Computed example of a mutant assay.
Amino acid sequence: MLVSLWFLTSDTHAQSFAANQKAARFVAEVVMNDFRTAQAGGGYVFSYDSHETEASLSARLDRWFSGADPQAIPMEPAEKQALFGFYWAASMMPAHSPCFRDIADPACGEDLSKWMARELDDDPRFIRAYESARTPLGLPPIERNAH
């Protein structure tokens, strides 16, 4: 009985990631803005395949956030970790956050930086969310900050 209970809890833990759609859309908007900047010859944060299009990138992000294909986005582990950081911050923001209307709004930067600071400070909610998403999203092991 204990063995079957262990299998049930292990399976539940493995399936515990379910993307917050509002946060996933926010990350998609961040990535698309970065992609458009890269395409225009400006500086960019994430790396993209030379044949990438907005449609293919959007589809890859959807597939990645589904948790079904951790390799759907061919980015470096640190880039995936950064994407998850944006995702977690967005998932913690209130529904009325300016970030969900316009990511260029200065008030969005304030909301985002507040949650990103908590992430950098190893907020236990971030750690739990990251660990539950590690396998489904193909995230690297988390490096905890030394305090």
Rank of each mutant, 00 (worst) to 15 (best):
M1C: 08
M1W: 12
V3W: 07
W6K: 07
L8Y: 08
S10R: 08
T12R: 12
A14N: 13
Q15A: 13
S16A: 15
S16F: 13
A18C: 07
A18F: 10
A19D: 04
N20Q: 13
Q21R: 14
K22G: 08
A23C: 08
A24H: 01
R25T: 04
F26I: 01
E29H: 04
V30Y: 01
V31R: 00
D34R: 07
R36V: 09
A38H: 08
A38N: 06
G41C: 05
V45K: 07
V45M: 12
F46D: 02
S47R: 13
S47I: 07
Y48G: 02
S50E: 14
H51I: 09
T53F: 12
T53E: 14
S56V: 14
S56R: 15
S56M: 15
R60L: 06
L61S: 02
L61D: 00
F65C: 04
F65P: 00
S66K: 03
S66R: 03
D69R: 06
Q71W: 03
Q71A: 10
A72T: 05
A72Q: 05
A72M: 04
A72P: 04
P74M: 09
P74G: 07
M75V: 15
E76Y: 12
P77D: 06
A78I: 12
K80Q: 12
Q81P: 00
Y87C: 06
W88V: 00
A90L: 06
M92Y: 06
S97A: 10
S97V: 04
C99P: 01
C99A: 05
C99F: 02
F100V: 04
R101P: 01
D102M: 01
D105A: 11
P106L: 02
C108E: 08
D111W: 10
K114F: 13
W115C: 03
A117V: 09
R118L: 14
E119Y: 15
E119W: 05
E119H: 11
D121W: 11
D122Y: 02
D123Y: 09
P124M: 08
R125K: 08
A129H: 03
S132I: 05
A133F: 01
P136W: 02
L137R: 00
L139S: 00
N145E: 12
N145F: 15
